[in-house]
Simulated assay, not measured.
Amino acid sequence: MAVVPVELGGRSYKVRIAPNLLAEAGQHCLPLLRKNSVSIVTDTNVAGDWRKIVERSFDQAGIATRWLVLDPGESTKSWAGLEQVTDWLLAGQVERGDHVVALGGGVIGDLVGFAAAILKRGCRFIQLPTSLLAQVDSSVGGKTAINAGAGKNLIGAFHQPSLVLADLSALTTLPDRQMRAGYAEVLKYGVLGDRTFFDWLVENGAAVLARESDALEHAVATSVAAKARIVAEDERETADLRALLNLGHTFGHALEAETGFSDRLLHGEAVALGMVLAARYSARLDLISTDDATRVAQAVETAGLPSEIAALGLDCDGRRLAEHMLHDKKMDAGTLPFILLNGIGSAFVARDVALADVAAFLDEQLPAH
């Protein structure tokens, strides 16, 4: 088992990474619980695969479970979904000192984490992430949120979990497309700050995607450790360090908005294409070599992820995509920071990027109308 600490003083916690953790979840969570019962929120897809196993593990630890099973997908991460979760928790008389368990991917983790952040001004929660994307990214670091009509993750709070159990066995039931989408976030850690890890992924990415045990554990643990270091130094993204984790996200969120935040383009797929665009735009500004930009695109394409906007079949121009960026939650004093590259493994925050230039660049990437 790999154990990665997230050092945040009184809010510190551990991320445990190994196979079969869901079957042992009860004994891992028991020391944190004040009662012999716990509320668990999941979705129908995850419940079908893992509810009985998790329920049995808590039962063996002497803990009764109460379940809320939601519809899967981004549409659940909404005001209506938040109301459903909070009303259910209140009906169950959840107290401020209690822990709520989030069993699922990024949608469930974000939604339940935000509900925990605001319920009675804050109760605790435990993350049991079942997707690769959630294990290496959204379950670690305390960003919780729901989507709004104006954009993704615009309503939220920083609220750290008390424990994260990243069960690698859960990835055996993950659809291949979801696995590839999660791999985009793994690749991101190499592109933004660790060229050695990027080079390792170029050689071993196929083994990770094939869920080979040793390669998978190394990829997840390295990714979590990278995020933990950044979060420990810049928990609330008040400096530029944590902002580096948004590599690919500004371009990606614009593409997600244009595709309606739907299954037409998964979040990880959008991040992958966003990284390619960030690399190409960096090359356009002569910040990195064209060869490095090409290497990023090749790593994305080899993983079966989108590397060209043309593949999305969008009916829009660069200006429209740039306008979506105006709703980005990272807007500050009227300017939007972009995460660009000085090289593979060397990302930085650029605050002098003109959206008109970005729009012109995107027009060059889009198919001719």
Results as ranks from 00 to 15, higher is better:
M1C: 13
M1Y: 12
V3N: 10
P5D: 13
G10D: 10
Y13M: 08
K14H: 12
R16H: 12
A18Y: 00
A18W: 01
P19G: 01
L21Y: 05
L21D: 06
L22I: 12
R34F: 02
V41F: 05
N45C: 04
V46T: 13
D49F: 15
D49I: 08
R51M: 11
E55M: 02
S57E: 06
D59A: 15
G62D: 05
R66L: 10
L68W: 04
L68D: 02
L70F: 01
D71R: 13
P72S: 09
G73F: 09
K77H: 11
A80L: 12
L82V: 13
Q84Y: 11
T86K: 15
L89H: 15
H99P: 00
H99G: 00
G104Q: 08
G109S: 10
F114N: 11
A116R: 10
A117E: 10
L119P: 11
L119K: 14
K120M: 10
R121H: 08
G122F: 04
L128F: 06
P129W: 03
T130N: 11
D137E: 04
S138Q: 03
V140Q: 02
G142A: 05
A145M: 12
A145Y: 12
N147F: 06
N147Q: 09
A148M: 09
K152N: 05
N153S: 02
F158A: 05
H159P: 04
Q160P: 03
A170E: 09
L174T: 12
P175K: 15
D176G: 14
R180P: 03
G182M: 05
E185N: 08
E185F: 11
V186Q: 08
V191R: 04
E203S: 10
G205Y: 10
A206V: 11
L209R: 03
R211N: 07
D214C: 00
E217F: 03
H218Q: 13
H218V: 05
A226W: 07
I230W: 01
E237C: 11
T238P: 01
A243T: 12
A243M: 10
L245G: 09
H249I: 01
F251Y: 03
L255G: 00
E258L: 04
E258P: 01
G260T: 01
A272H: 09
L273V: 06
A279M: 06
L285F: 08
L287M: 12
S289I: 07
A297E: 11
Q298I: 03
A299F: 03
V300M: 00
T302C: 01
T302N: 06
G304W: 00
S307C: 02
A311Q: 14
A311L: 07
A322T: 14
M325A: 14
M325S: 13
M325I: 10
L326N: 14
K329L: 07
K330S: 10
L336F: 13
P337H: 11
F338V: 06
L341V: 08
N342H: 14
G343Q: 07
I344C: 04
A356D: 15
A356L: 13
D357H: 15
A360H: 11
D363M: 00
Q365V: 06
Q365K: 05
L366M: 11
L366T: 07
L366W: 13
P367M: 08
H369S: 13
